Amino acid sequence: MMVTMKRSAVVMISMMMLLFAAACGSGGTNETATTNTPAPATEETTSPPANETGAEAAPQEITTVKFSEVIRSIFYAPHYVAMSKGFFEEEGLNVDMNTSQGSDKGAAALLAGTADISLVGPETAIFIHNQEGNKKLKIFYQLTMKDGSFLLSRTKADSFKWSDLSGKTVISWRPGSAPQMVFSSTLKQEGVADANVITNIAAPAMAAAFTGGQGDYIQVFEPLASTLINEGKAYYAASMGETFGSFPETSYVATSEYIEKNPAVIQKFVNAVAKGREWLNTASDDEIAEALAPFFEGTSKELIIQSVNRYKQQDTWPAKPELTAEAFEKLQGVLIENGVLKPEQKIANMTDVVDMTFVGKIGQ
Rank of each mutant, 00 (worst) to 15 (best):
M5R: 11
M5N: 07
K6Y: 01
R7D: 10
S8Y: 06
A9T: 02
A9D: 07
A9S: 14
V10I: 10
V10F: 06
V10N: 05
V10E: 12
V11E: 13
M12A: 11
I13V: 15
S14R: 11
M15S: 09
M15H: 12
M16C: 01
M16D: 08
M17Q: 14
M17Y: 07
M17T: 09
L18S: 07
F20V: 06
F20A: 12
F20T: 11
A23M: 14
A23W: 04
C24I: 14
C24H: 15
C24Y: 06
G25Y: 07
G25P: 08
G25H: 04
S26W: 09
S26H: 07
G27W: 09
G27R: 04
G27F: 03
G28Q: 01
G28Y: 05
G28L: 01
N30V: 02
N30L: 05
E31K: 08
E31Q: 07
T32A: 11
A33M: 14
A33Q: 13
A33D: 14
T34F: 04
T35W: 01
T35S: 11
N36F: 12
N36D: 13
T37N: 09
P38R: 00
P38K: 02
P38C: 01
P38I: 00
A39N: 15
P40A: 00
P40S: 03
A41G: 14
A41V: 11
T42P: 03
T42D: 06
E43K: 10
E43R: 11
E43H: 10
T45Q: 13
T45D: 00
T46H: 03
T46K: 11
T46M: 13
T46Q: 12
S47K: 13
S47A: 14
S47T: 15
P48Y: 00
P48D: 00
P48G: 02
P48M: 02
P49E: 09
P49L: 08
P49G: 05
A50G: 05
A50W: 00
A50T: 12
N51Q: 02
N51D: 15
E52Q: 11
E52W: 13
E52A: 15
T53W: 07
T53R: 10
G54S: 03
G54I: 02
G54N: 03
